[in-house]
Simulated assay, not measured.
Amino acid sequence: MLLQQIATIVTAAGESGHEELAPLIAPPLVVGGVMFALLMVMLFVTLSYSNLGKRHEAVEEHSDPHRQHPNKHDHGQGH
């Protein structure tokens, strides 16, 4: 029964002929070029932030007993 329904659907889909394509906002090369340019801009913005961690040496965080949520991951070494 199920195979017969699947065969009927496949046959009906094959007989429908050529489907009309959805309209594009611009020619495909223009759409691709704009997408590429946008991704390149995002790449350069991302790369411009890559040196933020290299500005100065990392400073050890001091242990402050008055913090509301003190660092509990130092295993007692930060005192």
Rank of each mutant, 00 (worst) to 15 (best):
H73K: 03
L29N: 12
L38N: 10
M42A: 15
Y49Q: 06
D64R: 04
V10Y: 03
Y49A: 05
E15C: 06
K54V: 03
Q68N: 10
F36R: 00
E61W: 01
V10S: 11
A7M: 13
S50A: 15
R55W: 08
E19W: 04
N71K: 04
V59R: 04
V31Y: 00
S16E: 13
E61I: 07
K72E: 13
E57L: 08
E57G: 12
G53Y: 01
S50G: 08
H66N: 14
R55N: 03
P70R: 05
Y49S: 09
G78R: 01
V10M: 14
H75Y: 06
L47S: 13
L52M: 15
P65I: 00
G53S: 09
S50N: 13
R55I: 14
S50Y: 10
Q4M: 13
A37I: 10
M35A: 15
Q68F: 09
A13P: 04
T11S: 14
L21G: 07
G78H: 03
G32C: 03
M1W: 10
G17P: 02
A58F: 06
P65Q: 05
T11V: 03
F36H: 07
K72V: 09
G76R: 03
P28K: 09
M35V: 12
E60Q: 12
A7I: 10
G53P: 00
A22Q: 07
L43F: 14
H66T: 13
G32I: 01
M1R: 11
Q77A: 00
H79W: 04
M35F: 06
M35P: 01
V34Q: 08
L38Y: 08
H62I: 04
L2C: 03
A58Q: 11
Y49R: 03
Q4V: 11
H56D: 15
V30A: 08
L24S: 11
V59G: 01
H79F: 08
S50P: 00
K72Y: 11
K54P: 05
G14F: 01
G76S: 05
L47W: 12
K72Q: 13
L39M: 09
T46L: 13
F36L: 14
R67S: 11
V10C: 08
A58C: 07
E61S: 05
G53L: 04
D64G: 07
V34L: 11
E20R: 06
V10K: 12
E57F: 03
